[in-house]
Simulated scan of single mutants.
Amino acid sequence: MSERKRRPLPHDFHPPVPSFAVVSDDVALGQKLKDDQVYSGGNLSPELRWDGFPPETKSFAVTCFDPDAPTGSGFWHWVLFDIPATVTELPTGAGSGDMKGLPQGAVHARNDYGTRDFGGAAPPAGDGPHRYVFTVYAVDREKLGPEADASPAVVGFHLRFHSLARAQLIGEYEVPAAG
């Protein structure tokens, strides 16, 4: 495994918190992402559902991060927060396109594409497999604090101090080198 693959995940720098379960019909742990979750494919946010979070949870946040992007700082594909605590599932496409199924009150921050939505996997050709870390955070407040124009780093700062628990699901995607 290359050194690049040993890059830590963003929440590795946060205080430890309990975990809970997140599953998906679109993303399988350690498996290749479906074309629907690829930027040049369907570019649709995946279906996610979660349970086992602390009863005092007041909202959720969902992120997708590629720690293997050749940027020195990874790449944020999705940053969504202020999801009401009554919502425990996002349907496919809730964070993209017409955003059908996006919970009322949920806020998209800018991703590293510069848009306020889910941006699919797009690793450089020949760069090897990239991990796409989908994380659901159980949050201790209804409103996390930042505005929609916040950077992923600012949202991460707030999540560091307001996460009660975390769940993650990691898929992979690779574009082979040109022939």
Rank of each mutant, 00 (worst) to 15 (best):
R4L: 10
R6D: 04
R6I: 12
R7Y: 05
R7N: 10
P8F: 05
H11S: 08
D12S: 07
F13A: 04
F13R: 08
P16K: 11
P16F: 05
V17N: 12
F20T: 09
V27E: 06
A28K: 15
L29P: 10
L29Y: 03
Q31G: 15
K32R: 11
K32F: 06
L33S: 05
K34R: 06
K34F: 08
D36H: 03
Q37L: 11
Q37H: 12
Y39L: 15
L44R: 04
S45D: 02
S45K: 01
R49A: 11
W50T: 01
G52W: 10
G52H: 02
P54H: 09
P54W: 09
P55V: 14
S59C: 04
S59V: 15
F60P: 00
T63C: 06
T63M: 07
D66T: 00
P67I: 09
D68L: 07
G72Q: 00
G72M: 11
S73L: 13
S73F: 07
F75P: 01
H77I: 02
W78T: 02
W78K: 09
V79L: 08
L80K: 03
L80Y: 03
F81S: 00
F81G: 02
D82C: 04
I83S: 11
I83H: 07
T86C: 06
T86P: 02
E89D: 06
P91R: 02
P91W: 00
T92H: 13
G93D: 03
G95W: 00
G95C: 09
S96D: 00
S96A: 13
M99S: 15
L102Q: 07
P103W: 12
Q104T: 14
G105I: 06
V107R: 06
V107S: 10
H108M: 05
A109P: 04
A109W: 04
R110N: 13
N111F: 12
Y113Q: 03
Y113S: 10
G114M: 13
T115G: 10
D117V: 12
F118M: 11
G119N: 05
A121S: 07
A122N: 09
A122G: 07
A122T: 13
P124V: 05
G126D: 05
G128P: 02
G128H: 07
G128T: 10
P129Q: 12
H130Y: 15
H130C: 07
H130F: 09
Y132D: 02
V133H: 14
V133K: 05
V136E: 08
V136M: 12
Y137F: 15
A138S: 14
A138K: 03
V139F: 11
R141W: 03
E142N: 07
E142A: 15
L144T: 01
E147Q: 12
A150K: 03
A153P: 08
G156D: 04
G156K: 12
G156M: 13
H158L: 11
L159N: 10
L159K: 11
H162T: 06
H162S: 14
H162K: 06
A165P: 01
A165T: 05
R166S: 09
R166A: 13
A167R: 09
L169P: 15
L169M: 08
G171A: 05
E172V: 15
E172Q: 13
E174W: 08
E174S: 06
E174L: 14
V175S: 13
V175H: 04
A177E: 10
G179V: 05
